[in-house]
């Protein structure tokens, strides 16, 4: 239905500061409401119409294109600090329609609809002939890789036992034959080393999430898994601006499963769960 008096709307430039401000509010809204997957960043503003509102204010109708970043939505890192997933990594694009009400210079989202789709295999092949493509998340090899990686992580973890929360992304690498998987985990009230029956463990009331990247290599007569997990500080109910330094990524190195557990550089024991970022490498 037309908004405001009649069909009069104005069409500012898509690169106007005001239009960009509206688009950035929209992208923030996406990243705060995405239930799973990865944060998105603004790529292009396709179209904008501004309708006058009664008794005051304006309604911005805006179409934007976004690109997926490498930060999971559970990662507290601000999206400005997140790297855009590149074409050769099988990029994912978002296509969104928003309506934002501007009153007293402040935007608020009234309507949001987004679709996302991975780049085509042909486009990925154009920039990198041998790069792996995204795999279905319910592929048995992907599920097995995530479960094996989490088991390896829990077996070496001195803290609480973690359960699989979501498989977020996976690729089947042809050479060497391996499965790369990214997934999120959630802390439970069991101790990792003692948790014999995962079913007996319940999730912590104060959710503690982690994000893992793992590769399962298929070897002759066996398999080898390397996993890196970053456990995030338990989030308060509403997301608060992070303290200085809370988002510093700790450099991680991948070690084989047989090596003794190693700890983040500069420490001699595992970080306590309360520290801002706790990366455990196995």
């Amino acid at each position: 239905a037309p908004h405001g008096p009649g069909l009069i709307y104005r069409q500012p430039n898509c690169d106007d500061p005001e239009t960009e401000e509206a688009a950035l509010v929209a992208v923030d809204y996406i990243n705060q409401h995405l239930p799973w997957g990865y944060k998105h960043t603004l790529n292009q503003i396709d179209e904008v119409k501004v309708w006058p509102q009664q008794p005051f204010g304006e309604m911005f109708e805006i179409e934007i294109d976004t690109l997926e970043t490498t930060c999971h939505v559970l990662d507290p890192t601000p999206v400005a600090g997140c790297r855009v997933r590149q074409l050769k990594e099988h990029a994912v694009e978002g296509d969104c329609d928003f309506q934002l009400l501007k009153v007293n210079g402040k935007f608020s989202v009234v309507y949001a609809k987004c679709d996302s789709s991975p780049d085509s295999a042909e486009d990925v092949r154009k920039v990198c002939r041998d790069c792996p493509l995204l795999a279905p998340l319910n592929d048995t090899r992907v599920v097995h890789a995530a479960e094996a990686a989490l088991a390896a992580f829990n077996a070496r973890n001195n803290g609480s036992n973690f359960q699989l929360e979501e498989i977020s992304r996976a690729q089947l690498v042809p050479l060497p034959p391996s499965t790369y998987v990214e997934f999120t985990i959630s802390g439970t009230d069991c101790v990792a080393k003692e948790a014999t029956e995962a079913a007996n463990c319940s999730l912590l009331a104060k959710k503690q999430y982690g994000f893992c990247k793992a590769t399962l290599n298929e070897k002759l007569g066996g398999e080898e898994v390397a996993v890196t997990c970053t456990v995030f500080q338990t989030q308060p109910a509403t997301s608060q601006p992070q303290p200085e330094g809370a988002n510093e990524a700790v450099p991680t190195a991948v070690v084989d499963a047989d090596a003794p557990a190693s700890y983040p550089l500069g420490t001699s024991e595992p970080l306590s769960a309360g520290s801002p970022i706790d990366t455990r490498v196995f």
Binding site: C14, E20, N43, Q44, I45, D46, V92
Partner: peptide, 27 residues
Amino acid sequence: SVVQPSVGAAAGPVVPPCPGRVRHFKV
């Protein structure tokens, strides 16, 4: 005498208002 009709001319290249600039790359 023969006079040319006045023809309007754009001051410079007309930048289409939309779509806007691509900040990263197009998929």
